[in-house]
Design a protein around this nucleic acid. Structure first.
Length: 459
DNA sequence: TCTGGGGTCCTAGGACCC
DNA sequence: TCTGGGGTCCTAGGACCC
């Protein structure tokens, strides 16, 4: 079998870059995009990062700072970002069918089948194509494992001399590793230089790149594991790669063992090409305002159920299990969570049935004196539509199931033709106090007819 | 006034069965 | 009724990702 080789294509500051597509005047200015309900910062331009605004910054604490520093704010326009994301996926799929869409702004490509002599030149060509056709800047990392490709892309993003592309292969020969290990054991772990000022980065060895990667920036090491590793004297990716596999497993579980192998160039995570079926679907929101209003709460849950059911039908799946939860504000004393779930003997993707079920479940714990802050609906235990089996008593009502299917198809096709939400269940419209605010949302330029950008010409 | 949303996987512990 | 081990299933919680 051929040695695997991966590329990670990672969009730079993706949400901000999408906003700038239609607002070129925002180039070189600090820009942030906020989460649903304008609660916290979920994307920052380089200029905003340079101002010290952290990921996840609570907006209410930073409002004055944004004003003082002329930071441009956007409410998340996730419809827009999803559309741009699909366009990028289309471009990448034209490069190779060996593609795994990892998230809205990242894709892995499998390169072992392609005949590539120079990975840097190849990476630059892909970067240029996406820039030219879509207008989004990307970084490219190439390496024999996904973990190393991620690491390479992260460096490609922050060192201008790399021109957004870093290839980390092939691996250096064994003797060098031994030498570096010796040197490492005599160096101080802290205060190691990470940011290289000049073109010298191009000549750095594989091991130098690992050494320049703080352990908490390694894919798979989060905020809980990082301090544990540091306590063991593991401060960077090179040291992590030199842990004994058994020790890594003790510290991080089975995942740690694979992580160490991946850092050593041994691929453990294959490309997941097929659009693997999801195992659960959830739709949850923090409300626009805390509320105990039963109409609004039922409307929220009905709306979540409708959205989740639609997603289920797009995936050609049926759910055996549905659940609902609601919470108070977790930042206030007396935080509480309620949850209930139910099981369907005959799995379903019928919006009406799901709405009825979740509203029913909600009433089992609803208390009119509670101000609810957040709620959600989830679906689980899926079976493919064409595998609908009868329940143990064979009591599937074939005619009723047929009518349900036809009803949903009609609903979906009308909404597809005339715009989403054109037809909905009355339960979704009983109140709107739950709806999150998005005062600063840009137009949905490419997904809504009435929000198309207007071009003025000078005569 | 006040901190997002949507996922996956692993592990530990309890219930239950043979 | 007791003893012990092993297997399975379920749930809750923890950890990670973007």
């Amino acid at each position: 079998m051929r040695q695997p080789i991966f590329a990670l294509i990672d969009c730079n500051n993706f949400f901000v870059s999408c906003e700038r597509l239609f607002r070129p005047d925002l180039e070189n200015k600090p820009v942030v995009v906020m989460s649903s309900g304008d609660g916290c910062v979920v994307a920052r331009s380089n200029e905003a990062k340079a101002l010290g605004i952290p990921m996840g910054a609570p907006v209410y604490k930073w409002r004055q700072f944004f004003k003082d520093n002329r930071v441009v704010q956007f409410s998340g326009n996730f419809e827009l970002y999803g559309d741009i994301s699909r366009r990028i996926t289309d471009v990448l799929a034209s490069v190779t069918p060996q593609i795994e869409v990892y998230s809205v702004d990242e894709s892995f490509l499998g390169l072992s089948e392609l005949k590539i002599d120079d990975y840097r030149a190849w990476g630059r060509a892909v970067r240029d194509k996406i820039w030219q056709w879509i207008g989004i800047p990307v970084s490219v990392g190439v390496a024999p494992t996904k973990t190393l490709a991620k690491l390479a892309a992260n460096h490609a993003k922050v060192h201008p001399a790399l021109n957004s592309v870093l290839s980390l292969s092939p691996l250096p020969p064994q003797p060098e590793r031994q030498r570096e290990r010796f040197i490492l054991s005599h160096s101080t772990a802290k205060n190691r230089v990470r940011i290289f000022p000049s073109d010298s980065v191009k000549g750095l060895s594989f091991h130098a790149w690992l050494r320049a990667t703080p352990v908490q920036e390694v894919w798979g090491v989060g905020w809980r594991l990082a301090p544990r590793l540091q306590a063991e004297g593991v401060h960077d990716a090179l040291q992590l790669s030199q842990l004994r596999p058994q020790h890594a497993q003790q510290l991080m579980g089975i995942h740690g063992r694979q992580l160490v192998a991946e850092l050593n160039g041994l691929s453990c995570y294959p490309l997941e090409r097929e659009g693997k079926a999801q195992k659960s679907i959830a739709r949850t929101r923090t409300f626009g305002e805390d509320t105990g209003d039963i109409g609004s709460l039922e409307a929220a849950l009905a709306s979540f159920a409708a959205k989740a059911a639609f997603r289920l039908r797009v995936d050609h799946q049926l759910a055996r299990r549905a659940g609902v939860f609601a919470t108070t504000n977790k930042h206030k004393p007396g935080y509480q969570v309620w949850r209930r779930e139910t099981y369907f003997p005959v799995p379903t993707a019928d919006t009406g049935k799901l709405i009825a079920s979740v509203v029913d479940l909600f009433h089992k714990f609803y208390n009119p004196h509670v101000k609810y802050h957040r709620a959600g609906v989830w679906l689980q235990d899926f079976v493919p539509v064409d595998h609908l089996q009868t329940d143990v008593f064979g009591s599937v009502n074939v005619a009723a199931e047929g009518r349900s299917k036809a009803r949903m198809q009609t609903l979906d096709s009308i909404n597809e033709r005339f715009g989403r939400g054109k037809i909905r269940y009355a339960a979704e419209a009983l109140g709107n106090k739950w709806e999150p605010k998005h005062r600063l949302r840009s137009p949905r330029y490419v997904t809504r007819w009435n929000e198309l950008p207007v071009v003025h010409t000078l005569k």
